[in-house]
Structure formats: C-alpha cells, structure tokens
C-alpha cells in the first residue's frame, strides 16, 4: 500500500466506512456547569455502541449561559441510533432516568427538523396530573413538579435522518503510551468540532472489532488484523515496530461534520509527530460495500 508521510506519520491510502443513522440532540441545563455535565455524563453512560447499548451518545459541546434557552450553563448532547423507534425509546429512558433525576436540571430541544421525537410529551406523565403545559413563542414546554421545584422539559425534539455513524481513525504507535498520547491529541481536537461526538470512553476505543466471529451468535469480534500480539499468527496489518493501536470512532450530525472531525483528528496526530505519538494513521472499512459513506484519508490531510 503506497504511503504518504506527514511529520513522520505515515498515512494509509485507505478510507473509513460509515453508515447512515438517525440522530437527535438535546440541551441540558443546570444551576452550574458541574451539574449540567453530571446530568449529561450520566445519560450518555453505557452508550458506546449500537451493537450492545441500543444507541451511541456523548456530549457534543458545552454551552455558555447566553446560548441556552433559560440562561444557565448547559451541554448539548447527541444521541444516535439505527431506527426512529429505538432512538425514541433510548431518548425517553435516558432523559427520564438520568436528566429528570439530576438536581436543578432542565432539558430542551437541541435540534430542529421536520421529524420529531417526544421528549417532555412522554415524560410529563411523571407529574401525575400536576404537570403544566406552556407554549411560548411557538415552543412547547412541560413543567413537571419535582422535589427541588420543577423539571422543565421541551415537549418535542427534532430528529435527523441524515446523520452518519462510524467515521473512524486507527492510530498505530510503537508503544501504548505513544498510542494513547496520539489518541488524546485527536480527541481534544475533535471535541472542538460542533455536531460530532466520540461515544467511546474518553472518545477512544482499544477493542476495535471486525464483523462476525468463529462463535455462533457473535455479531462482532476482535479485530485480529490490528492486534499486535497476533501479528505472527494471523493475516496482520501491522509492521514489526507497532505495539499498540487505538481507534477514534466518530458520529456526526451530517457527513460534513464527520469529515471535519476526522480532518481535525488527523491534523492533531500529525502535529504531535511520530516521535511522541503515532507512527501511522489508518482507518477501518468493510471493503466499501456495507456503508454508504466513505472518508478517504488522503482527502482529509491537513
């Protein structure tokens, strides 16, 4: 495979393969940033992959008080799923169990669109008849009495059918510490991109997967081609000096958001250089037949 080098970091002539998804976004506010983030982190826990969690979710950006509907600090959280029904179910359960319960929280639509999901319209029943409906300037809110006052929640939130899930970067390094340094640099850069999230722990995956496995019922199993300990015994993608690989998985509100995020990640990793970080950047795909969206690394160079 011909390789291009930027600042000592080799870039594979390959592409990331990603899939169309349904996505929505909500704005969570609280009396201060700590509690806005706490509610957001709690509701996006166990939401790394649609394979086992039903959805993929993470904080998109922190919002200043001037950017939120109620003038308090907030976060924009994005949630991705493979179907509208599953997205509705995950949204309702997660906001109901994790945001409604968080002290001082309120929840607003973070996305507009012709397709809508229920938000407060489903959670209002917690009010047991004491809930109050308010329409202000074309927006509909539900006020649900709770023990610290009221949980205010917008009735509905928009949903996009144009979201993309599964953009990725594989960062190959000489040691675990260098792989982690490169991945952390990429995560920090991608966090600045609006409309893109990284649902895995801290934005990083160490257990990249391939489709299927030798055991019946396994829809995904270890990506042996990128596992350094299997270098001698399997058809490996790794050269002798690679000892650790970490992956960044990116979901975006639009295909452009995914491309921008991957571009920002590649820029950060190449700026860090091969001496401190990754020796090589690659990407995961399934031969190009499964996913509608292809992101060629050579098109995303800094």
């Amino acid at each position: 495979m011909p390789r291009l080098k930027v600042n000592g970091v080799a870039i594979d002539d390959t592409f990331a393969e990603a899939f169309g998804m349904r996505a929505t976004a909500i704005v969570i506010t609280a009396p201060n940033r700590k509690w806005a983030r706490q509610a957001a982190v709690t509701m996006t826990g166990f939401a790394t992959s649609v394979i086992g969690c039903g959805c993929e979710a993470a904080i998109d950006v922190d919002l200043a008080p001037s950017e939120t509907p109620d003038g308090r600090p907030g976060c924009r959280v994005m949630i991705f799923a493979v179907s509208t029904d599953e997205l509705q179910k995950q949204l309702q359960n997660r906001v109901g169990q994790c945001v409604l319960t968080s002290p001082g929280s309120a929840c607003f639509a973070g996305l507009e669109g012709p397709n809508e999901l229920k938000l407060g319209a489903a959670l209002r029943y917690f009010g047991d008849g004491w809930q109050i409906s308010k329409k202000l300037g074309g927006r509909h809110f539900w006020r649900v009495p709770v023990m610290d006052g009221e949980f205010v929640c917008e009735a509905t939130v928009g949903m996009t059918k144009g979201a993309v899930g599964g953009g990725n970067l594989l960062l190959l390094a000489g040691s675990n510490a260098k792989a982690l340094a490169a991945a952390e640099a990429a995560v920090a850069a991608i966090n600045e991109v609006r409309g893109a999230i990284m649902p895995f722990p801290g934005g990083i995956v160490r257990s990249g997967s391939k489709v299927g496995g030798k055991y019946k019922g396994m829809t995904a199993s270890t990506n042996d081609a990128f596992a350094p300990t299997l270098r001698g015994v399997t058809k490996s993608e790794l050269e002798p000096d690679v000892n650790a690989v970490l992956e960044i998985v990116i979901d975006g509100e639009t295909s452009d958001a995914v491309a921008s995020a991957m571009r920002a990640g590649i820029k950060a990793v190449t700026q860090l250089g091969s001496a401190k970080g990754a020796l090589r950047i690659s990407a995961g795909n399934y031969g190009g037949k499964l996913g509608k969206f292809h992101y060629h690394l050579k098109d995303l160079l800094p």
Binding site: T29, P31, P69, D70, G71, R72, G104, A106, K134, L136, G137, F141, R143, D148, G149, E150, V152
Partner: peptide, 17 residues
C-alpha cells in the same frame, strides 16, 4: 419560592418579544 426555570424562560421570552 424554589428556583424556577419557567420564570427564567418567561423573563427571557417577554424581553426578546
């Protein structure tokens, strides 16, 4: 008189309108 998000929404709405 607990803290009220509704009051904050209402106040902002009345001023922006």
């Amino acid at each position: 008189a607990p803290d009220s998000v509704f009051a904050a929404l209402m106040d902002r709405h009345l001023v922006t309108e």
